[in-house]
């Protein structure tokens, strides 16, 4: 029995593990505002435990890794951003589509100087922003390269965590082949995207969904899960972020009772304070009711569900560590009996 759960970790200590240990690419999506970048970072930390080496990748040009780890903006380069006490390392890479294209051209066509000429005529702009799909092929192609990179027969990274585009775009982003194969019937772009598609559809990949227990993120999240299924992409876990503490679930809120308690604690028990507390309690119960309905809805997706607590220090390094501890427990948790 793993006993690593953080004291704040709510229910969910048992059940299917967050991911199969063989998973090497963890793709993290979720509606905007659900905290998918934070969860991605925490997952990269969790996977780096026990002396492992993980790579955290961002592709949206937002520099959110730098912000989360309180660093200067990251260049297009794999750099260590965290070393764990247990010997693990997290490296980070902010992929820039333009740089990835130039790198790609250089690698396959030795286009060093000519690359700049391409930029001059607007071809780079075209390829990375206008041409459909090319950008996503480049971004996912770079991810695949990192996942499959090996030195002396050993993987360079034990796991790669991709902070992917939000739910609204995730299907399109990951389903690069369909679009590009239709446009590029032959040629390197086609083989490149086929290679990526094979990795994304293999058991080495899991696409995790981050959500909050609010209607929109859950609706968009379950829609995205269905879309991934349709596209043959391997759905991973559902990670519920920021759940409210499950207190007052059944309580009948009585003003007299509150007054008695406040007096016993030596706190002001005037009418305004009593009704104020009662109102906070009732609004909380309303939220809990919504949350439990949505929790049930998520359960129908038949995926492992992991709940992360709402933190007083969200957005800080300490907050990341707490989330990493919760996720680590979920990676190793026992099956419910």
């Amino acid at each position: 029995m793993a006993r690593r759960n953080h004291p704040q970790a709510p229910a969910g200590q048992c059940g299917p593990a967050l991911a199969d240990p063989a998973t090497r690419l963890h793709v993290v999506t979720g509606k905007g505002g659900t905290g998918k970048s934070t969860v991605s970072a925490a997952l990269a930390l969790a996977l780096a435990a026990d002396g492992r080496r993980t790579l955290l990748v961002e592709v949206e040009g937002r520099q959110s890794i730098a912000q989360l780890f309180e660093l200067e903006p990251l260049p297009y380069q794999e750099l260590p951003i965290a070393r764990l006490d247990c010997g693990g390392t997290v490296l980070a890479l902010a992929i820039d589509a333009e740089a990835a294209l130039l790198e790609y051209l250089d690698l396959f066509y030795r286009l060093g100087v000519a690359g700049r000429a391409l930029r001059k005529v607007g071809a780079i702009d075209f390829a990375t922003t206008i041409a459909p799909g090319v950008r996503d092929v480049l971004l996912t192609g770079k991810v695949k390269e990192a996942v499959t990179r090996a030195v002396d027969g050993r993987w360079v990274y034990d796991a790669v965590v991709l902070d992917a585009p939000p739910t609204g775009r995730i299907g399109r982003f990951l389903n690069v082949t369909a679009e590009t194969a239709r446009l590029a019937k032959i040629g390197p772009i086609k083989s490149q995207s086929e290679g990526v598609a094979a990795l994304l559809r293999s058991p080495r990949t899991a696409v995790h969904l981050v959500t909050r227990l609010e209607e929109m993120p859950v609706q968009e999240g379950t829609d995205a899960m269905a879309e991934l299924k349709r596209l043959g992409l391997p759905a991973g876990a559902i990670i519920v972020n920021n759940a409210w503490p499950p207190v007052l679930t059944e309580a009948r809120i009585s003003n007299a009772e509150i007054r008695r308690g406040l007096a016993a604690a030596g706190l002001p028990s005037d009418r305004k304070t009593v009704t104020g507390l009662a109102r906070e309690g009732r609004e909380h119960q309303t939220r809990l009711a919504v949350e439990s309905r949505l929790r049930a809805e998520l359960r129908t997706a038949d995926r492992p569900v992991v709940e992360l607590p709402s933190l007083p220090h969200s957005g800080t390094r300490t907050g990341l560590e707490v989330l990493a501890t919760c996720l680590r427990a979920a990676l190793h948790r026992p099956e419910a009996s």
């Binding site: 503490p245 207190v247 507390l277 906070e280 309690g281 007083p312």
Partner: peptide, 18 residues
């Protein structure tokens, strides 16, 4: 003996912090 008020105050503290 004061579970309700105790829980409400705990919630209140979280709300104020938030």
């Amino acid at each position: 003996d004061f579970t309700l008020t105790g829980e409400l105050l705990g919630l209140h503290a979280s709300l104020v912090e938030q």
